[in-house]
Design a protein around this nucleic acid. Structure first.
Lengths: 230, 230
DNA sequence: TCCATACTTCGATAAATATCGTATTATATA
DNA sequence: TATATAATACGATATTTATCGAAGTATGGA
């Protein structure tokens, strides 16, 4: 029984608590320094450096040097998507405190998945875009219809510019809290950045949490017909 | 950053070569003794026993005692499905010999996934059943249409009996070689057993490989319109 | 009753590796 | 130039754990 996909290579990297925490922290899609990540994983900088070297060696993260600092980030959206799948499979976190419980609720509502939106809001938006006929799901991708092209133009998203980026244009990404799919890829990222530009959503420091602003609530209502509670 | 799904619990179990091999071997859906699994993983029986205890403790496998023997099996189709997802994520196996290469090709063509059919043949059959309107994919399940009920009755599959089994009736299962979905659950199992009954397919000892018989080739052609090359 | 087989338990061992203290390099700032 | 900070390199340590030998338990067969 020597022939079977090599599951151990990836899982061994994720089986370590500190590395898993580092990767989970990086899933906010932002760059982070080694010291920041060390603090989040409650380990010394040397240890974080050791783990980050291993993660970069295995192409899970990439880094950019800038002066004294070195910024780390998830390598690409394939890695991010894979990590989301792992999270969807894993048992849900044990919630201890009330504070953690409400934080988890907010994360389940809206968070970043690498460089696009995830959580209930993202899943709802993706469903609406399908129901309205803007997107059609085919295999693991979404296809933008003619109607969709008009919609995205109205929203101010530059489809032509996005499609020039050399990456998956619109893959469907598994959502660990909703256990279904949301929109990822360049289009997911384009929408995400447009929402920020419009002031509909805001990112929070050191968290994957996304805040829907008042302007965002009316925006999502007007453009998508989506009522957001939280 | 304490709030994040607990990825380490599952991955730690899969990160070990011997355990991964044992689980991969059990993915043929059959019961296997501890000695058999020890032999397949090239470890001593004590070591296999140690791993199997761990796997059973974490509800990945179940066992039945029968005389001196103890038979182990994947716990349920959720576990099997999860393992398939892990395999689909993991890098493909390094093929060394010509023998391994042809074995891999046969596995990619048709193999068991827990207790139903997987591989190219299974994906093709599933697609055909959707195109012909026997099945409709909805969320993560397949729904049998009225037309489908007739089809399955003609094929000799007892839908009523299957639906009485207390398990997922017809979930869609991720295929690691084809990177798309095939039919699992009780219906997938029912079809699988019916194919064997009809003499269309044959299982091989100590392998997930499935052989399509000559009778099977004409059967799949007549009932599904599927030409099978291998 | 005796023996062989299947499996598990226990204890010892060896290997892997996460962690941190200390030291070093590189960069920014005063 | 001197000092503080960010990150890495190296060595030592401690912890974990997979592995196997030896022994023990349960079962089937001669």
């Amino acid at each position: 029984m020597s022939i079977h996909p090599n599951i151990t290579a990836l899982t061994a990297l994720l089986a370590e608590k500190s590395r898993a925490t580092i990767l989970a922290a990086l899933m906010d899609g932002k760059f982070h320094t080694a010291s920041e990540l060390a603090y989040m994983a409650t380990i010394k900088p040397q240890t974080a450096s050791f783990h980050l070297a291993k993660l970069e060696e295995n192409n899970l993260v990439i880094s950019e040097k800038n002066g004294r600092f070195r910024y780390f980030r998830i390598a690409n959206d394939e890695v991010a998507n894979t990590l989301e799948i792992f999270m969807s499979i894993s048992p849900p976190p044990e919630v201890r405190s009330l504070k953690q419980s409400s934080q988890l609720k907010r994360l389940e509502n809206a968070r970043t998945c690498y460089d696009h939106l995830a959580g209930r809001v993202s899943v709802n938006l993706t469903n609406i875009m399908q129901e309205e006929g803007y997107l059609e799901r085919c295999n693991k991708k979404f296809i933008v219809s003619a109607k969709g092209e008009l919609f995205f133009r109205d929203l101010g998203v530059d489809l032509v510019g996005l499609s020039k980026k050399r990456r998956s244009f619109s893959h469907s990404c598994l959502d660990w809290s909703e256990r279904t799919h949301h929109l990822g890829g360049a289009l997911g990222n384009g929408l995400f950045e447009r929402y920020i530009e419009l002031g509909w959503i805001e990112t929070k420091a050191n968290s994957r949490e996304i805040v829907i602003t008042t302007r965002g609530k009316s925006g999502f209502k007007d453009f998508f017909g989506l009522e957001i509670q939280m």
